[in-house]
């Protein structure tokens, strides 16, 4: 094969792969939009935010308010982030700058293992350990808090491992430069290493949060699944993902279309979140 031709073949394969990646996202959004179209174009989508409750099956008074579920999705994600981001970042700092080599290796291995545990196992574990524990102090146990804790554990390895990669990617000469200026260890880490790696750390957090907002299986098992606006972290909640998972099996006609529309809202929310991050990443100091 001539060099030119092999070049063209490679270029074609790479282009095709890149195109497929983009097309997949567009395809999924398009599919959701088509399925949700009856709701969107009839203007009934406003029911999402005007209806008070979610009772799609009711014969007399079907209602499609998803505000409480969107709120639940956001709150669970936020809670998971509050719990997992500091622990993940601090863990990575320990791993890179303080842990002896032998311990560091084990920390990596355990985190990778944690990342590999299927979400249903997390849910199962949450249901049999976290939920009864919360129940002892603040019944019922299945709650916003339980979902937040389980999700935090699930996204912790993502955040810790990407932060670790970002920190180890810093050039040793930069850290030697910081040391040569007489900076103490904490100053080297907080003022030089973290700011240098901040894009990578932010990417890790975004990846983790993206996973958190879309996670279904573990959450559905521990969140309580009551569509209501929570008044405390101990109240049961029901995020959008759970609703879709629980109802898609039997939903018909209008109900089904509303579920697709809810899915679309979820995708848009994630996209919005990523967009904000890209904007922030692009701006310089």
């Amino acid at each position: 094969m001539s060099r030119l031709r092999s070049d063209r073949v490679l270029s074609f394969v790479l282009n095709a792969a890149a195109l497929l990646c983009g097309a997949l996202v567009l395809g999924i959004v398009l599919f959701l939009s088509i399925e949700a179209a009856p709701t969107i174009f009839s203007g009934k989508i406003s029911a999402f935010f005007t209806d008070e409750k979610w009772q799609p099956g009711s014969e007399r008074d079907p209602q499609f308010g998803i505000f409480s579920m969107l709120l639940a999705s956001v709150l669970i994600t936020l809670l998971a982030a509050i719990l997992a981001v500091p622990v993940g970042i601090c863990g990575a700092i320990f791993r890179v700058f303080y842990a002896p080599e032998s311990l560091a290796k084990w920390q990596d291995r355990f985190l990778e293992l944690l990342a590999g545990i299927p979400s249903v196992i997390f849910g199962f574990w949450g249901l049999s350990v976290i939920v009864p524990f919360i129940n002892r102090y603040h019944p019922p146990g299945q709650s916003l808090l339980a979902a937040g804790i389980v999700l935090a554990l699930m996204i912790l390895p993502t955040i810790a491992l990407t932060t670790k990669s970002a920190l180890t990617a810093i050039s040793p000469s930069l850290m030697a430069g910081a040391a040569a200026l007489g900076l103490s260890r904490p100053a080297q880490i907080l003022q030089v290493a973290i700011p240098t790696a901040r894009k990578g750390i932010a990417a890790g957090c975004a990846l983790g949060l993206g996973r958190a907002i879309g996670e279904t299986m573990a959450v559905v098992m521990v969140c309580g699944n009551i569509a209501q606006i929570p008044h405390s972290v101990f109240d049961p909640v029901r995020p959008v993902t759970s609703t879709i998972a629980l109802e898609m099996g039997y939903a018909t006609a209008e109900h089904k279309s509303y579920l697709y529309a809810a899915g679309l809202v979820l995708v848009l929310m994630t996209a919005l979140f990523l967009l904000v991050r890209i904007r922030k990443g692009a701006s310089q100091w």
């Binding site: 050039s171 000469s173 430069g177 200026l181 700011p195």
Partner: peptide
């Protein structure tokens, strides 16, 4: 060591300003 390094500065082969 910290005050030693304040008295004895160093410039490296590859320029290494903090990327800030």
């Amino acid at each position: 060591v910290l005050s030693l390094r304040r008295k004895v500065g160093m410039v490296f082969q590859k320029p290494n300003p903090f990327p800030q």
